[in-house]
Structures are given as structure tokens and as C-alpha cells.
Computed example of a mutant assay.
Amino acid sequence: MTEPLFLQPIFKERIWGGTKLKEEFHYEIPSSQTGECWAISAHKNGQSVVENGLYEGISLDKVWEEHPELFGHYQSEVFPLLTKILDANRDLSVQVHPDDTYAQEHEGDHEFGKTECWYIIDCEPGAELIFGHHAQTRDELEHMIQSGKWDDLLRKVHINPGDFFYVPSGTIHALCEGTLVLETQQSSDTTYRVYDYDRVDAEGNTRDLHLDQAIEVTNVPHEDNELSFMEEQRTGAFITTLVESEFFSVFKYVLDGAGSFKQDSYFQLFSVIDGEATMTVGGETYKVHKGDHFILTSQIEEFTLDGDATIIVSHP
């Protein structure tokens, strides 16, 4: 099959969500507190469904399970990646994710750890996020958490549109108010909450914290990752390699005309975050617009893109 798999997003209401997913991408969202668009997902907690072609109406996990040839027989029991767009209308909880070993021991055999990365699509002037901490030992980390010394513990970073952050498992982090992000991550929904600003939901309840697990899995001391963005000018596109890791590689394509490209992985995930373009695959032409998400399978060896668009591309 040489056609792309276009996917129907799933939306998640969150206490910190807003309406940017509708305003920016024209999605039909469930409420004014919609925080997450699960754009490409085969996770049990949110299944994308194919919108077109031979597999129309079938969930991505079923396609993955029943048609491994579409994904180059990539060796993983479950689809390995999850692409989201997050609307942080308010601060997210301060949290940390486990690695694969800890997740499989404590959360079940089919749950990955969660290394992720963020591309800042947009943010308010002066916006920031929490990335890392200042504790030097695990005892100091535990003391500062138990004592509520959040201003001393948490490391804040100012951000701008176009910034990129690689967030390995074990990194204390939080998106903050006024931030719109495309997130590429391992296919995991395991989060250990460290601090939630003592806020309550509509029923007056605070959200659960997971302090023992968080202290256990947090990297101490925090270390920043050195990212070296590789840039390549091709006919029709300027391509930036944002990260290449053991879990995923992520690229930004800025299209400025027509270009031809080759499938250089088992399969590739595409998210159009601005503009529009035409994509030609196997002699068929498809219009792609801001807010579209699709997979190019391993059976697509070559494709062309023509337009004025920004696309985030990833593969395992």
C-alpha cells in the first residue's frame, strides 16, 4: 500500500487546558478546557483512527498489529511513538516520568518509560517552563520536596516560539501558562506528579501526587542535554535535525517550494503545524493543511512536497 495513513486526533480535557487547539488548528474540541490533542497514537488510553483508504475506520494499534509490513516489521510489541499538541492555558503540574525498566517493573509489561521532546509552536511574551531542578543529592531533593521549597528547587527557563527541548525520563519538568507545544514522546501515559500548586478541580478535589515514585526516578543532579541542531538546505525545503536519540529522531521541515524526498526509516510521522502543501505519493496527490497528521509507511519509498508549510517529522 503506497498511500499515507491520515489519522483522526483524540482530545483530552485537562484542568490546565484552554481553546487554542480550536483557535489555531480549527479542531472540534470537547470543551474550553481542552489540553491535549493526541494526534498520532496507538496507546490504549487514546487510539487514533485511520481516516482514509484501505484501513479507514481502523484504529492505529490494530493496523500496527495486523499489518507489520507497513512499518518495516519494526521490532516492538506496540507502536513506539506518540505525537501530541498541548495547550497549556494554565501551568501544568510539576512532574517526572520513569524510564523503560522502571515502568515495566511497576506499571506493566506493555508500558514504556517516557522520554519526550517539545517544539514550542507558540507562547506568550515572557513565557517560561520548568526544566530540571537544583538539588545536588537525592536526600536534598527529598527534603526540598517534602518541605515545599519549590522556588529553591525548581529550575525555570524562558522560552520563545521555535525553541526545542529534549526531555529524557527522570527529568523534572512542567509546561507553564501560555504555551502551545508539539510533543514527540515514547508511547506512554505514565506520569508521577510532584507538585500541583495546591489547586482543586470542579468538585473541589486536589489531584493525586506520586512523591515516592517521583523521588525514586528523578535524575540527580539534573544535567542538561547538549543539542546540536544540524541544518540542511534542500530543493524545496530547509530541514533542521532537532534530535536523534535511541528513542526517536525529530526534524523540522520548512517548505518553500517543491522538493523530492526518500523514506529513510521504517516509517515516518508527519504533523503540519503551519501552512499547507500538496504531497504526491505513488502518483496520487494529497492536500495537507495545518493540523493534519499522517504516517508514511515503509512501502512509500519516495514522495514529493510542494508548498509553504512547517512540518514536524519523526521516526523511531
Rank of each mutant, 00 (worst) to 15 (best):
E13N: 13
W16C: 04
K20N: 12
E24D: 08
F25M: 04
H26W: 06
P30R: 04
S32K: 06
Q33P: 00
S41W: 02
A42K: 14
N45L: 11
N45E: 14
G46H: 00
G46D: 05
Q47L: 13
Q47M: 10
E51T: 14
E56S: 08
I58W: 04
S59C: 12
E65R: 14
E77R: 14
P80Y: 07
I85N: 04
D87E: 10
L92D: 00
P98E: 09
P98M: 06
D109Y: 01
E111W: 12
G113C: 10
I121A: 01
E128V: 06
I130H: 15
G132Q: 06
L141D: 00
M144K: 13
Q146I: 01
V157R: 14
V167Q: 03
L175F: 07
L175I: 07
L175D: 02
E177T: 14
L180T: 03
L209T: 13
H210P: 12
L211W: 06
D212T: 11
D212W: 02
E216S: 11
P221H: 10
E223I: 10
D224G: 06
E226H: 10
L227Q: 08
S228H: 11
E231S: 04
E232C: 10
T235L: 08
F238W: 11
L242P: 06
E246A: 09
F248M: 12
S249I: 04
V250S: 14
K252G: 06
K252F: 07
G259W: 02
F261L: 09
S265D: 15
S271P: 01
D274M: 01
G283K: 10
H289I: 03
G291S: 05
G291A: 05
T297I: 07
I300R: 06
E302F: 09
G307T: 06
V313F: 12
S314C: 07
